[in-house]
């Protein structure tokens, strides 16, 4: 009787571990795919941002800090607003969103990897 109960207990625990392992593997796969896609998507967006910064004159405005420091200090409000006007806000927001996806999915992938390794041992 006691042997039967021990056997039943070990079977149930094994099944629970198998389900946990399956879920961890699925999560790790999703995490890896998401981190790969978000990493690859970052490159064209960075290139787009640099091109937009060039077209908008952002670097020209920024260079005024070095060439006309005292004038920029007096008209700091107009200077700040011109920098904000020239910033490609939508693209910058997209970069941060992708970075968030990349870092979160990497974190979950590593957590699931550790869990899978612990079960496999």
């Amino acid at each position: 009787m006691k042997d039967n109960l021990d056997y039943l207990e070990s079977r149930i625990l094994n099944q629970i571990n198998e389900i946990k392992l399956k879920r961890a593997r699925a999560k790790m796969l999703v995490g890896r795919v998401l981190s790969g896609v978000s990493f690859v998507a970052l490159f064209p967006i960075f290139i787009n941002i640099f091109s937009q910064l060039q077209t908008s004159g952002f670097w020209n405005y920024l260079s005024l800090v070095f060439t006309d420091t005292s004038t920029v200090a007096v008209y700091w409000k107009e200077f700040s607003l011109s920098l904000v006007d020239a910033l490609p806000i939508v693209s910058v927001g997209l970069v941060f969103a992708l970075l968030l996806v990349l870092l979160t999915s990497l974190r979950f992938s590593i957590q699931d990897y550790k869990l899978i390794k612990s079960y496999e041992f």
Partner: peptide, 13 residues
């Protein structure tokens, strides 16, 4: 769209 509206605090060109 917002990004293509002209800036009102300067010009470069």
């Amino acid at each position: 769209m917002m990004d293509s509206l002209p800036g009102a605090h300067g010009a470069v060109g």
